[in-house]
Design a binder for these strands. Structure first.
Lengths: 217, 217
DNA sequence: AGTATATATGAGACGATTCTCAGTTTTGAG
DNA sequence: CTCAAAACTGAGAATCGTCTCATATATACT
């Protein structure tokens, strides 16, 4: 219809130009996360994703080959983006134990504030090898830092990683399903620190330190 | 063809008669677990389940309405059956801490010895509310026992449950994907006991006690 | 403004699966 | 042994999602 419109849509954010391609791709990823979180990965269809994204069905295939492809892309995108935001939020903290506690609490807080996004991450966390590979390094870095600082005392690093990731996942599950409230968050954070070898009193103190605000996405 | 057969198939096990209905239902559940474990919940079809079960396609609908229905039923069936076998295996153990460590190790051992079944449980553990409801009491009983016996010292029961279930799940994941070997099992069990408030040395000792054999299914 | 390139559209062909149902076989009790 | 009720069968109709492609529109460059 309108032929004269030129560059109407372009958005300049922090000085960066976002191409139409990037923008549509992001719409698809967001829609996928929403649909998968609401209906489950199984029941969510490409049709529905494109509908929620506000694009035509055929547009999907300009960006992704299959449902699995967009699932994986969305998992990585939101997982890594969220890790980066967390990392920025505690950039000024040197204590490995405190960083660990903050990371977990940010994730658990997401479960309360954006349950859909949290549920989406939950649905891929245990099944997607790639999600695990991408997210693990962020956590492992803090674990190693804490060990170096003698804040943690762990016999097996792999077991410690299972404890950290598994406990946080289970807690997020409890939080998104409404079984647990805000008080649960510090309790879980403290439990993890104790599991990593800290004294109960100290673990509690660290888990209660103020939670720095997350930078916007 | 054969008209004279009467009650040919009936099996008498431990004095109990299994009706044809029960039997077919169980064939379907087993087939479902196998198919879902091999192909994933998404790719597994009702057609394939009935083929593996050795029944006609239409028979499925005498027992379940949808794929979700059989998924849930299978999850509960195998989850609870496995819990009962574990419970029988440590019936003679009084120490809550040892029971907790055995339970976890049995589950992790399953990941090595029947990875398909373990992967199936994994795929439902975090997403099915009902699985959680059914399996949780078994674990909670040992947790409470350990607390009463002063073997554990936990600030929050809910956080402790998240720690136990989440860590075991994450460990099973590592084990089924081949990232970890047998040695991982005791390390994880010890980590959990430490997370529940036991001293490192004692946790280690308990996690190494002999694992009683599982009774056959 | 004009044009080449990139991107979006959506109707419809296609394939796969679900689900039904009329007919057949099996079961169990008398 | 007989028979009614229960369970099973499998062909095929109905449904649903995927994916393609010819066409339309938007963008970037000059």
């Amino acid at each position: 219809m309108r032929i004269l419109s030129v560059c109407q849509w372009k958005k300049i954010v922090t000085g960066r130009t976002i191409s139409k391609r990037e923008r549509t791709r992001h719409q698809l990823l967001s829609a996928a996360a929403k649909v998968f979180a609401e209906k489950g990965v199984e029941a969510g269809s490409i049709q529905e994703i494109t509908a929620v994204a506000g694009v035509a069905n055929g547009t999907f295939y300009n960006y992704f080959q299959t449902k699995e492809a967009i699932l994986e892309a969305a998992a990585i995108h939101f997982g890594v983006t969220f890790c980066e935001r967390i990392k920025a939020s505690y950039a000024h903290i040197e204590d490995g134990a405190e960083r660990m506690a903050i990371g977990g609490r940010q994730y658990m807080t997401l479960a309360l504030e954006q349950p859909q996004l949290a549920r989406f991450m939950l649905s891929v966390a245990l099944s997607s090898r790639i999600w695990d590979e991408q997210v693990r390094p962020y956590i492992q870095a803090d674990l190693m830092l804490g060990i170096r600082q003698k804040r943690f005392r762990v016999a097996s690093r792999e077991a410690a990683m299972n404890l950290i990731m598994g406990t946080n996942l289970a807690a997020v599950r409890s939080l998104t399903s409404g079984e647990a409230g805000r008080a649960h968050i510090t309790a879980v954070a403290a439990s993890i620190l104790r599991g990593l070898g800290m004294e109960p009193t100290e673990a509690d103190e660290v888990a209660r330190r103020p939670l720095p605000p997350l930078p916007p996405a």
